[in-house]
Amino acid sequence: MTTHLHIDWTSCDGRGLCTELLPGVLDRDDWGYPLARGKSGRERTDVPLRDADREAAHEAVRLCPKLALSLWDGEKPEPGRRRPGQ
């Protein structure tokens, strides 16, 4: 079971806290938004994490100024897990 970092693009404002906390996982595009390093497709939105990155990912979820991040385990996020933008 892999932990994934979900980025809610409707909430994210590219403030760059997550890219600071997870420099090995996330790069920043020119507009400030996080870009999962070496990932494509869905894994840019649901980024699989190595165990070593889980703690930093937790911090990023806690500190994201827009509450745009969440973590989920396993294959699929459970529905209704969070209410984006609320």
Partner: peptide, 18 residues
């Protein structure tokens, strides 16, 4: 400063937030 999304000198953004 936090809202601007900018780091300050040696302080990264998440430190400013904290």
């Amino acid at each position: 400063l936090n809202r601007s999304g900018r780091p300050l000198l040696v302080l990264p953004r998440f430190s400013i937030s904290l």
